[in-house]
C-alpha cells in the first residue's frame, strides 16, 4: 500500500507543508491547512465582491446571496443579543462565513477541512471565551459574577450551584470547539470509509455508494448546521456577557 491504506480515514486530515517557513524557531510553514484557510477567505471575498459589484435596488442572484447571508446573521444577532450586539456584528458575520466555507470546501473530495482540526476550532472558541469574559467584566464590573449564582436560588444551594456554574462556564470553549471539530472529523471520516468500501467491493460497491450519497447530503446539512450552531452559541455567550441577569 504505497499511497497509504485506501480506507485510511485519517489520511485526509494530515497536514503537509507547501512552503517551509521558520520564524524565530517556530514552524510557521504554509501548509495545506493554510491553503484551505486562504480558499475559505477567497471564497467569502469573491462572494461579496461579486455580490457587491453591481448593487441595485432589485438584487441579482449573487447580491441576493450576500444580502441573505447578511440578513441571516444580522437577524440571529438581533434575536439573541439585541441592539447592543451591533458592535460585534463584523466578528460574528466573519466567523460564520469563515466556518461555513471551511466546512463546505472540506466536503469536496481531495480537499482539506480546516475546521476538522481541534486547534483551529479551539482558537476560535478560546478567543470567543476570552472576549466574552472581558466584555462581561467591562460591561458589568464585578456584577458579571452573578452569572455563577442565578437569582432565585436559595442560599444553602449556593455551594452546590456555584461550582457547577463555574465548571459549565469554563467548559463552554471546550464544548464549542469539540462540537464543531468532532462533527467535521467524524463526518469526513465516515464519508472516506464508505468511499473506500465502494472502491474495494467493486460491483457490489453500489450498496455503500447509495449510503455514501445519502451520507453526503447529511454531511452537507451538518456543514451548514455546525457553522450555524457555532455562530448562534457565540451569540448566546455574548448575550450572557451583556445581560448576566437573565
Amino acid at each position: 500500500m504505497a499511497a497509504g491504506n485506501p480506507i485510511d480515514p485519517i489520511h485526509q486530515f494530515e497536514i503537509s507543508k507547501i512552503a517551509d517557513i521558520q520564524i524565530g524557531g517556530l514552524d510557521l510553514s504554509f501548509t495545506n491547512s493554510s491553503l484551505f484557510m486562504v480558499f475559505a477567505l477567497s471564497a467569502t471575498v469573491m462572494l461579496f465582491l461579486i455580490g457587491l459589484s453591481r448593487r441595485s435596488i432589485i438584487p441579482n442572484r449573487m447580491q441576493m446571496l450576500s444580502e441573505l447571508s447578511y440578513n441571516f446573521i444580522a437577524n440571529m444577532l438581533r434575536d439573541q443579543v439585541g441592539d447592543q450586539g451591533r458592535a460585534y456584528f463584523p466578528f460574528i458575520f466573519s466567523l460564520f462565513m469563515f466556518i461555513f466555507f471551511c466546512n463546505f470546501i472540506g466536503l469536496i473530495p481531495y480537499t482539506f477541512t480546516v475546521t476538522s482540526h481541534l486547534i483551529v476550532t479551539f482558537a476560535f472558541a478560546g478567543l470567543i471565551f476570552i472576549a466574552v469574559t472581558i466584555i462581561g467584566f467591562v460591561k458589568n464590573g464585578l456584577g458579571y459574577l452573578r452569572i455563577f449564582y442565578p437569582s432565585g436560588i436559595p442560599i444553602f444551594l449556593a455551594p452546590l450551584i456555584v461550582p457547577i456554574e463555574i465548571i459549565s462556564y469554563l467548559s463552554k470553549p471546550i464544548s464549542l470547539s469539540v462540537r464543531l471539530c468532532a462533527n467535521m472529523l467524524a463526518g469526513h471520516s465516515i464519508l472516506k470509509i464508505f468511499a473506500g468500501f465502494t472502491v474495494m467491493l467493486g460491483f457490489l460497491g453500489f450498496a455503500p455508494l447509495v449510503f455514501l450519497v445519502v451520507l453526503y447530503a447529511l454531511e452537507t446539512l451538518i456543514a451548514a448546521l455546525q457553522a450555524y450552531i457555532f455562530t448562534i452559541l457565540t451569540c448566546i455567550y455574548l448575550n450572557d456577557a451583556l445581560h448576566p441577569d437573565h
Partner: peptide, 25 residues
C-alpha cells in the same frame, strides 16, 4: 503543526474580518 495553523488562521481571519468590517457590511 499548531503554530503554523494558528499563525495562518490569525492572518486569514484578520484579513476576512477587516474585509467584512470595512467593505462588506
Amino acid at each position: 503543526t499548531f503554530p503554523s495553523q494558528l499563525f495562518w488562521l490569525v492572518i486569514t481571519f484578520t484579513i476576512l474580518y477587516i474585509f467584512m468590517w470595512r467593505v462588506v457590511i
